Structures are given as structure tokens and as C-alpha cells.
Simulated scan of single mutants.
Amino acid sequence: MAYVILNLVCVAALVGIDQAIKLWAIQYLAPVEAITVIPHVVELRFVLNQGMAFSLLSGKQLFLILATSAALLLVAYLLFFRSRGKLLQQIAFILVLAGGIGNLIDRVLNGEVVDYINPLFIDFAVFNFADILVCVGVALWVLVILLEEVEDKPSKEQ
């Protein structure tokens, strides 16, 4: 039971941080549109995204809500029933779940996601904390899969 509670607390804390940052962006960043953080490198820019990454599927809110919900149910199942004793995998699923929930909240309540991190050194989409959680979580998940493959291969000496 402590395992489930710890996971829920971690997910809730990350979702709370995401939503707090987005609330700040709506209240303080939206009126000024952009704040330079590091000149020519990164700025905070208020953007409302009706799609997903790179504005893909823009305007397809019902599909995005349903697809995201289904994916998050799968990740929650993997977190609570398949990652016990596998810390790196557990962290990966917590990050993906929290980021997905953070953006799903925006999509359900507002029909669009608040983005605010704009790297200036490349022509790239504006993104947010939840997007970072999902990307880092997926990268960790891939690492876990690769490490499991390495461990499962029998050594050539045998």
C-alpha cells in the first residue's frame, strides 16, 4: 500500500508543479507575451496550443483527450502493477503519467495546452514542464528496456 501511496504522491506533486507554473504563465506571462531568460538562447513565451507536440492534430481535441486518457491508463497500470522493485522504470512511469495528466487537465478544462518555454537557438516548438516530464520519462523508459535487453542476453562465454 505504501508503494501505491508514494507513487500517487509523486505524480500529484509533479502535476501540482505543472499546474502552478501554467497558472503563473496565464497570470503573469500572458500580458507581456515574452520574457527573455538568456538572450538568444531561451525565453518564456505564452502560447496556447490546441494540438500536441509541434501543434500536430490541432483542433482534434476529442481525439487527443481520448487517446491521451487511454495511454495514461496503460501507463498507470504499468506503474502500479508492473514496476514494483524496478526504481528506474517506476520513475519513468511517474514522469510520463504526471506530464500526461498535466496536459490532459489543460486540454479538458480549456481545450488547449499552455506552453511557455521557447528555445531561441533553434526553430522549435514552444513547450512546457509537462512536456519535459513526458520526454524525460519516455527516454528513461527506453533506457530501462535497453538495460533489460542487455541483462537478458546470455554471455558469449557460456
Rank of each mutant, 00 (worst) to 15 (best):
residue 137 G to A: 07
residue 107 R to H: 09
residue 121 F to V: 11
residue 125 A to Y: 04
residue 136 V to A: 04
residue 155 S to K: 15
residue 117 I to N: 13
residue 140 L to I: 05
residue 119 P to T: 02
residue 130 A to I: 00
residue 126 V to I: 15
residue 106 D to H: 05
residue 144 V to T: 13
residue 120 L to N: 05
residue 107 R to D: 07
residue 114 V to Q: 10
residue 120 L to G: 04
residue 144 V to Y: 02
residue 148 E to P: 00
residue 102 G to S: 12
residue 142 V to S: 09
residue 126 V to H: 05
residue 145 I to F: 08
residue 117 I to K: 14
residue 157 E to Y: 06
residue 153 K to C: 03
residue 127 F to D: 10
residue 99 G to M: 01
residue 128 N to H: 06
residue 98 A to Y: 03
residue 131 D to M: 06
residue 127 F to C: 06
residue 99 G to T: 08
residue 101 I to F: 07
residue 129 F to I: 07
residue 152 D to I: 00
residue 143 L to G: 12
residue 137 G to S: 03
residue 117 I to G: 14
residue 122 I to P: 05
residue 137 G to N: 03
residue 113 V to M: 13
residue 149 E to A: 13
residue 145 I to T: 12
residue 155 S to C: 09
residue 109 L to Q: 15
residue 150 V to H: 02
residue 117 I to E: 09
residue 157 E to N: 10
residue 142 V to E: 08
residue 119 P to D: 03
residue 106 D to T: 03
residue 141 W to A: 15
residue 134 V to H: 05
residue 111 G to F: 03
residue 151 E to A: 15
residue 100 G to A: 07
residue 134 V to E: 06
residue 134 V to N: 04
residue 115 D to R: 05
residue 123 D to A: 12
residue 131 D to H: 07
residue 120 L to T: 01
residue 143 L to R: 02
residue 142 V to D: 08
residue 137 G to Y: 00
residue 115 D to E: 08
residue 122 I to E: 10
residue 124 F to W: 12
residue 126 V to E: 07
residue 127 F to V: 01
residue 113 V to H: 12
residue 135 C to F: 03
residue 140 L to H: 02
residue 155 S to M: 09
residue 139 A to R: 06
residue 121 F to Q: 09
residue 134 V to P: 04
residue 123 D to K: 09
residue 148 E to A: 13
residue 101 I to T: 13
residue 143 L to M: 05
residue 146 L to A: 15
residue 157 E to Q: 11
residue 150 V to R: 10
residue 155 S to W: 01
residue 128 N to I: 01
residue 106 D to G: 13
residue 112 E to P: 01
residue 127 F to N: 04
residue 135 C to Y: 00
residue 112 E to G: 08
residue 141 W to L: 15
